[in-house]
Structure formats: structure tokens, C-alpha cells
Design a protein around this nucleic acid. Sequence first.
RNA 1: GCGGGUGUAGCUCAGUUGGUUAGAGCGCGGGUUUGUGGUACCUGAGGUCGCCGGUUCGAAGCCGGUCACUCGCCCCA
Length: 414
Amino acid sequence: MEKLRKVRGVHDLLPNELHNHNIVVNTGLKISDKYNYSQIEIPIFEFAEVFTKPLGKSSDIVTKENYIFKDRSEDELMLRPEGTSGVVRAFLNAGLVQDVPQRFSYCGPMFRYERPQKGRLRQFKQFGVECLGLSNSMADVEVISLGYDFLSQLSLLDKIDLKINTLGDLESRKNYKQALVNYLNDYQSKLSKDSLNRLSVNPLRILDSKNEGDKKIVENAPNIIEYLNSHSKRHFDDICIGLDHLNIKYTIDKNLVRGLDYYCHTAFEFTTNELGSQGTVLAGGRYDGLSKMLGGPDVPGVGWAAGIERLALMIQSNFDDKIDVALIARSENINYLLMPIMKKLVQTEIKSEIIYTGSLSKKFKRANKIRASYAIIIGEEEINKKLIRFKDMKLGSEEFLDLNQAIKKIKKIS
RNA sequence: GCGGGUGUAGCUCAGUUGGUUAGAGCGCGGGUUUGUGGUACCUGAGGUCGCCGGUUCGAAGCCGGUCACUCGCCCCA
């Protein structure tokens, strides 16, 4: 077995697990389409700077969690750790700046070299949406509403809370950062080691520290709301009003911040306490500066990404792998008669399996195991009558029918 | 990257203070049933006890290392 190890933090998706993933993705695609978000697909690797520039030099995603490698032409490439940067890059490359707003959805694998935990893998999948070209606060509301409906359709709303906050625009954030650092400087001796380090690198991150001592200090820290300029304040207020009008419940969490540099204004998170410490199930925000960081023009954007594995862990579904018909020949030398029958069934959208080997008893055991609703049996007697034997596996009843009659019976009930 | 827990059959787990051929249930194969499944009974296969090393007359159990999983931290979806 030693040789068959798989790489740490990656998962195989067997049919029953993949089934849940597909439910999540298909639900996302369907609801996004109704909001007029069109699915796109972009590469799973890019030039490293597509991610390093916008995500920020201080973010863990870039500094210690990246999968960076050089290809044969010595280009520095990176497996994508998130979707937004690549979507915006694609948007810019396609020249769609001329044609805004653009609304996209995407899904696929992301890569982060982290310590694996439940709901946290090194290769994991996200489903996300991005709305590009709108600075209007209603775009934020639209995107949150889409996320809300998505979770609603997965029947997860009662297990999930929505938290929102604002980071303000650049000016507001700069003022706030200064005030925060001034406040925290008085507590340097009491801050945790991590937070002390963040004080110079990314002080906002201290706000969502889970260290108990830090939490106490942060309780009385200045509130960003009070440092917002009028534009930022209005943007945030409008979002709250918009959500209120949709009856979407939320709590304002003044300590909710984002680790990535490109965020501004709105930050939001849908969280659950059912997944241990990996409680964030869908999160996003506004990223007006991202396009410029990539070297493009100023294009505002809002969006979110959801963890497909995390959602798949939460949804209730029973993987139903039963089939309509088991096809059985009485002896193996007439197996060739089964394939034409199967073809006919396939054409009428009936799902079947031919059971090729074993004694008749074994074949029925197999038919039972694959949970066939019916069995079609052929043998000498059936060939002579030019009919098939049709068995209802649930009732145990059998009758001689021609294939068309059997198809009608199968169709009627299934 | 840091700290705690776990690792025995395909799955869920027993296995006494270290003692001889390592167990159960489920699942899987064969049979009771040479033209009929589900239930029942009979029966069989499947383990280098995660891996490497050490202690010991003797290790699944102790010690060290390593790998994986898991929980928490960091971080994030």
C-alpha cells in the first residue's frame, strides 16, 4: 500500500461523494443563471504575479501556501489559490472593459499548501460569482442575495448565519488603520505573538484573532464605522437597507476583515458551526482595486466564493444508484441477445445493466444488489415464444411480454 | 509551520499487567437451490497489527523516529 499513497490533502471523489458535489455545483449554476451570471472557465494555473500582485505580499496564501513552479521555459507559474484574480485577468484580456457590467460564475479546483483538516484540503473546489463594472452598492446586495438564495436552495439557511462588515475605501481604511495602531500600541505587551507581528504587517487582521487575550483588547478598539468618510458610510448603509428590504437577516461584525489586499468596502461571510473551525462556507466582498493591481484600468467588482466540499458535507442527500432493469440470459451462450435489448432500452432512456456471468441464482442476486426495479430474462422457452420474461423485482411477479409492452410498463411506473 | 488525539481484515471496531496458530459484526466468495433474488442456515477467502528502528527470551500493546488521518492554532472557502 505504501506505493499507492496519494498526495497529502487531496481527495478522490467516489460516485456517492461526487453526487453531493454535483448537487452543490448544479444548484449554484442554476440560481446564478437566473441572476444572469454566465458560467466561464479559466486556467487552473497562471503567471504567478496574477495572484501575488493582488493578494498582497503579506497574505499567507502568497507567502506560505502557494504552489509555485517553473515550467520548461522558466516561466514562474502558480496553481490558482482562488478564483477572483483569474476571472478579472480573463475579463481584462478579453477586452470586456468596454462592455460592462459583466456577470460571471465559475467553479473548479483551487490549490493551497495548508495543513489539511476536515473541510480544508490542499486541492479543493470553489463555486464563485463575480460582478464586474458596477460600483453601485446594489451590486453588493445583488451578489449577497444570490449567495443567500444559493444556500437557501441547498436547504442550509437554518444552519448558516450571515455576517457583514465594511472596510471602507482606501482613505477611510488608512485613517482607521492609524487609529487602530495607535490604540493597539498601548497594549503591545499584552498582545499575542502573532498579533504583535501583525501590528506592523496587517493590523486589521488582529481584529479577528481568536486569541482570548487579543479578543479582550479588541473589544474596546476603535470601530471602523466611525472612521468611514461619507461616501463609504453611505455605501455601507445602502447595503444594509437593501438587505433589510429583502428580509435577509445579517449581523454586522465590526471585527470581520479579509486577509487579502484587494478587498475594500463590503466584506461578508456565511458561516456555520457544524464544520468545526472551518465554519466559513461562502465569503466575499468588494474589490474595486483589483483590476488596477493587475495593471488594468479601474474596474470595480464584487463577488464571492463558496467551498464546495464544505457545502457538500452539509447537505442531506441520498445517492440513489438504483437502475430500472437487469438483463439476464439463462445461459451465457445467448448473452449476445441481450445487447440489442439494452440498446432499445437506452433509446427509450431506460437505465439497465446486463448481468453476464454466474448461475441464474447468482444473476438474480446481482440484480437485487444493484437494486433493479425489473428484470428481463431470456432463455429457450422465451426464444421459442418470441417474447421476453418480465419480472417485477419488488412483487416477484413474472409475465411473458414483447419488449415494447415491457418498455411501456417500465415507463409507466418509473 | 505549531500543539493534542488516532492508526489492527474492504468497512465499523474488540484484543486483559508484553506470552504460543490475532478476533467479532457487516461486506465479499462458494453452497443449501443443475430455470429465480431479497430472509434463513452452512461454509470459505481476506491481516508483513501504518512504516522503520530499538528494548525484551518474547511486541498489536513499551520506547524513538517517520508517514497518514483527525481536532485545535495560524490562515481561509
